[in-house]
Every structure is written in C-alpha cells, then in structure tokens.
Design a protein around this nucleic acid. Sequence first.
DNA 1: ATAACCATGTAAATGGTTACATGATTAG
DNA 2: CTAATCATGTAACCATTTACATGGTTAT
Lengths: 186, 186
Amino acid sequence: MDTKTLCLGALSLGDASGYEIKKMFEEGPFSHFYDAGFGSIYPALNSLLEDGYVTCQEMEQVGRPAKKVYSLTEAGRASLHKQLHTVPAKDHIRSDMATMMFFGHLLDPRQKDLVFESYIDQFRDKLRCLHETDVSDAPAERQFIHGLGVALYETALDYLEKGADVFLGEQSGEPEQSKKRAAGGA
Amino acid sequence: MDTKTLCLGALSLGDASGYEIKKMFEEGPFSHFYDAGFGSIYPALNSLLEDGYVTCQEMEQVGRPAKKVYSLTEAGRASLHKQLHTVPAKDHIRSDMATMMFFGHLLDPRQKDLVFESYIDQFRDKLRCLHETDVSDAPAERQFIHGLGVALYETALDYLEKGADVFLGEQSGEPEQSKKRAAGGA
DNA sequence: ATAACCATGTAAATGGTTACATGATTAG
DNA sequence: CTAATCATGTAACCATTTACATGGTTAT
C-alpha cells in the first residue's frame, strides 16, 4: 500500500490538510504501523485530486498560513474500499537501532550507550503518542489495533529497561550516562 | 542504512553467497528488524565488490548451480564499523495488515477473516524462524536483540489469539474458518 | 508432472527521501 | 534573537520492487 491509499484512509476519518495528515502518521492513530513524510504526502494529495478521489478547499486562517482541506469523494471512498480488499503484503520493518545493537560487540561504549538510549526514547515517545490518542469513540477494530501497538511498545520498553545491564554489560566508563538512565522517564 | 551496509554486516558473521544472505534476512538472524530481496542484494554485492569492500570466489558444486561466495575485506570491515557509528535513523514500519485491520469496519467478513488469519500466520512464521535460529554461540548483544524479537512476536501473537473474538465480533458467517483457527499451529 | 529449492542477474518502473524555497507567528 | 510551529510545494536523487531471463535438481 502506498501513501496515496493511506491518505485516502486518513481522510475517511474526516477532512484534513496535508499537514494534519502528516501528524496522523507521526504521532496519531497510524504512527505504529505506517510512516510518511511531507515529500510523499503532498504529491499524493495532488495526484488524488487529479484522479477525482478527493476535493480541495482552501481555508484562510487568521495569524497563520492558509491551508488546503481535502475531502474524500465517493470515487475516493470506493478506491479505498477496493485497496482494502486486496491480498495484504507482508510487513516491512527496518530498524537502524536494532541493527546497531545486533552488532553491539563492534561498538565503542559511547555509541553503544547512545543507540540503546535512543531506542528506549523512541519506544517511550511512541507509547506516549498512543496514550495521547483518544480511541474511545472509534470502532472496535480500530481500538483493537491501537491496543496491539500499546502492547508491543510496552513489551519492547520493558524488555529494554530490564535488560539494560545485560546489553550494556555494566560498563564503568561513563557514570554520568548511568545516572541519566536511572533518572529519566516514567 | 541501506542493503549494502547490511550485506557487509551479514558477511561479518562469515562468508556467504547472495542467496544465503537473502535467507538471513528472510528467516535468519536479521528477519525481525530488516528485510531485503534478491533485487537489492545482488546489485549491492556487485557494488561492494567494485568498492573493494568484499572479495568473491566462485564455487562449483555437484548437482546444483555454482555459487559466488563473498568475503569481507579489511576496507569492508572498516566501512561497516563506520556505518555502525553514525546517528541511527528512526525505525520504519509498514504494515498492510495492520492498516486493513484498522479499517476493519469497512471490510466484508471474508476479507476481515483473511487479513486476521494472515497476520497471525505471519507472527507464527516469524516466531518459528527465530526459534530455529541458534544464538547460543553469539555475543550477548546479538542474543539480546534476538530475545527482543521473540518477546515482541510472542506479545503480538498472544494479543491476536486472545482478541480474535473481539476483532472478528463473533461472526457466524463461515464456521469453517473458525475451525481452521482453532485447529492451526503450535 | 509439478512444485519447490538452488543460484544469479538485469532493466524498467515505482516510490520515497532529501534538500531547497518561502514566509508568518508565537513562545522562550 | 532564536527556535519551533504552522503551511505548502518541487526537483533531483536514491533505493527498492517487480518482472523478466535462465536452468538444473529434488521431492511429491
């Protein structure tokens, strides 16, 4: 599934601008299973407009730039429906941090610590975003997928936090880093 | 991190052919945090050869096609080391199945069931691959990342299996599908 | 017979990221 | 004064996927 289809999906939740859709990918309801940046969202939206799958209304705002609010058309809704009924591809995952940690024995202590902290921070951030997303009014299916994201991130965070000493091997190098780790977060 | 760097990483575990590297991504030690197909691995290997980061030896085999076995050079090892000491990018995730399930209220019962089953199958497969990968001789860091994958997949599988009724909403439609679900797997 | 596995590769097409370009407002 | 947030967009570049091309062996 490409960014175009995902934009259609985002708009099925309500009218939105490209900027707002970006936030749905970054910290909203899609954040744990899809990502997209401006460079793919804006072109996708313009292409969708040409296809007749969305309409666009320019909204002037006081004290900030005008925004383009997109709405799904019937054709757009039909296209989304069609895409949702294809054979799903396998998940794609790419993690630099897991890769670096996999080769942890090749890392110097500073990098090892930095990567480990970044990974924890990432999961903490993602978990915070999911907790800030209100799903109480959403259909059961959407709540279910939200719950999966929460379960996954909680597992990852827990695993990393409890295994810090195993992974870092009780480095004596930089006591300041250890302090930061003990102090941070929840 | 691109496929070239990951190939360097794969070769740091021992000499291998493109075909063998593919299997490391698909069902081996990298399977839960990276993926790559033939179309990116073979060109990457040839590019690495031009760069002088790997050497190649053609090995004739009885009863099967000759294979090209690649080995890391010192320059390759240095390049890997350098890549491992950059600032890691955030994780990238793309899940068609989660997306479809997120829009589960728009799916007809057959598709809803199919996607759900596919998702469970995917996690079961991945978990099986991880269990079949022997890490007993690997460095602690590699074992740690392996354990994270296991923990994550177990959580996902458990969440899906226990929530089947919540997600599928006790459809009465196709009793055969329910039987399959109850019978399958571990 | 047929499918799956072994084994490598290329060319075209797709799709996404990065960098650039612009510019007002608000909070620190 | 600086950084962040709001807001949109394009062009060049990069990487990956897909489809094609080939061909022997082994298991069902």
